[in-house]
Design a protein around this nucleic acid. Structure first.
Length: 493
RNA sequence: GGCAUCGUGGCCGAGUGGCUAGGCACAGCUCUGCAAAAGCUUGUACAGCGGUUCGAAUCCGCUCGAUGCCUCCA
């Protein structure tokens, strides 16, 4: 279904700072690149939020009927711990600390990354390329940039010449910086540098003898600079100019700015039509970051093993919590906020479960068609998931009213509601259904049903000791009985 | 210091120049054997100070505060 023909999508383009009507280069097809993780430690929740925002965007674009080629890389080389001239490769450092091979580090944390994303119910990207798998492509780009005169070689390293570049191109257009300001405001570098000026950045770094991760190049053994891989991999799989490039806010400068410069220097073309930036997840009001230790691991949320948490939270609850905020807003994580989201999540899911059993009639008190378009309008407005969720709760209210008998719905409306709620909750927001361990269990269903019958018998005999014992003990086990007009149902938390 | 973003009711969090966002919590009511669930009702929120306007929380200016980037970071 080519929904995109009727649903007009607008997205906030960081390049222009405006909300723009989205138009892909080739109708019906979208190329999207997102900067992936550097796999030198466990993914923390802040990383997950960015990837989750783009997972939701990927899901919605697909839902609209676009054929999306979604590329998200794994950075397994080239990022330095410190200043580009002095630092140690993060992965090499971790390898040294843990006394293992660099590629063991990469393997370990790539596996962790995939495991966590799977628990969060992520869709896999179309292509997940690695930096070390694209050294040749990176070397080719360096040669091209050297050819065009926008880079220079010093002592086996190659640097991008920002000053030269900005004579013909606009360096800083993404992050709103001016080169003159940057020159006057540059901090003093403690290390002596091969660079002609501090704004220049490395395309290729010479490897010192002790450096393990190294590749041969025309300038001697070395490793690629940290902005280059994304230019190489995005253009290789998506073309010289593609539709969407995403990443965390913190990558806007210098990483994405340098990506633009590299691409423009090598072929003169602006690489990306729409730049999207996901905002930070904060903890205690401060950005989560691996380097500062102010972070929380997904595993700690799932298990509840963290001092700020009063209990464990399911991955779907965390996902729901994140979807309740717009991807361009800063979101602060707290126990209270998660608790509130958990309740809301269950209310939404319970209502969806009840939807199938609703009795239909000849008329509807709920204009489902209009409601559905409101949901689309929310998503079309720069993927406004919080507004979408507000609309979903409007549907929840109607479902409950219909269940109570205060409102009615036609069969056609019920089916439409069921189908669109399913699309928005599961396909677009990516919220998993109830935990499989009990939903799949027919036996549990039967056992609880039996207890419900026993309780009802006890109640009709006014044996409230027995009936309350059943209800309270089930509740203690996490099974809630809910008495309604149509009988008793239950939910498991 | 420079660039940028933000400051919404008890908490989280949308949004718009004039029309109830939503979730959670709280209170009252309905239902119930009592509860829970569900429903109904109630909140005179938009950092402060000025300005533009018939009208601004929404536009402009200033002040204060917070955060991000400027060095690796989703």
């Amino acid at each position: 279904m080519q929904l995109y023909k009727e649903q007009k999508l607008k997205i906030t383009n960081s390049l222009t700072g405006k909300k723009e009507r989205f138009k892909p280069i080739n109708e019906g097809h979208i190329g999207m690149y997102v900067c992936g993780p550097t796999v030198y430690s466990n993914v923390h929740l802040g990383n997950c939020r960015t990837f989750m925002s783009f997972d939701m965007i990927f899901r919605y674009l697909r839902h609209l009927g676009y054929k999306v080629r979604f590329v998200r890389n794994i950075t397994d080389a080239g990022h330095l711990v410190d200043d580009a001239d002095e630092g140690e490769d993060k992965i090499a450092k971790k390898a040294r600390l843990e006394k293992i091979e660099p590629m063991e580090v990469v393997q370990r944390y790539t596996v962790d990354f995939h495991k966590i994303l799977e628990q969060f119910n992520f869709l896999p990207p179309s292509i997940e390329p690695t930096a070390t798998g694209h050294i040749i492509e990176q070397l080719e780009i360096i040669k091209e940039i050297l050819n065009k005169g926008y880079a220079y070689e010093v002592n086996g390293s190659v640097y991008f010449d920002v000053k030269k570049f900005s004579e013909s191109f606009e360096y800083g257009k993404l992050s709103g910086r001016k080169l003159e300001d940057m020159i006057t405001n540059t901090r003093e570098l403690t290390a002596q540098s091969d660079k002609k000026s501090p704004q220049d950045f490395a395309l290729w770094k010479k490897a010192e003898p002790q450096h393990i991760m190294r590749w041969p190049s025309p300038w001697g053994d070395g490793f690629p600079g940290w902005h280059l891989e994304c230019t190489a991999m995005s253009t290789k799989y998506l073309g010289d100019t593609f539709d969407i490039h995403g990443g965390g806010m913190d990558l806007k400068f210098p990483h994405h700015e340098c990506e633009i410069a590299q691409a423009e220097a090598s072929n003169g073309l602006s690489p990306v039509n729409y730049w999207l930036h996901a905002n930070m997840l904060t903890l205690n009001g401060k950005k989560m970051a691996k380097s500062t230790g102010n972070n929380i691991l997904p595993g700690e949320i799932f298990s509840g093993e963290n001092p700020i948490l009063s209990k464990p939270f399911a991955p779907a609850v965390v996902r729901f919590f994140m979807m309740q905020a717009h991807y361009t807003s800063i979101l602060d994580l707290s126990n209270d906020a998660l608790l509130a989201s958990e309740k809301g999540y269950h209310r939404l899911m319970d209502a969806f479960d009840n939807l199938g059993d609703l009795v239909t009639s000849g008329k509807s008190d709920f204009n489902v068609q209009e409601w559905q378009q409101k949901c689309y309008d929310a998503m079309n407005d720069d993927f406004n998931t919080p507004t979408l969720i507000a609309h979903l709760f409007e549907a929840v209210k109607h479902i409950n009213l219909i269940k109570e008998g205060s409102e009615s719905i036609t069969l056609a409306d019920k089916e439409l509601l069921q189908q669109s709620m399913n699309s928005f909750i599961f396909d677009v927001l990516g919220l998993e259904g109830k935990s499989a361990d009990y939903q799949d269990s027919d036996k549990l269903q039967a056992v609880v049903q039996l207890l419900i019958e026993l309780r009802n018998e006890a109640r009709s005999n006014k044996d409230f000791n027995t009936s309350d014992k059943i209800r309270d003990q089930l509740s203690a086990m996490g099974i809630q009985l809910k008495d309604g007009k149509e009988g008793t149902t239950f939910s498991v938390s």
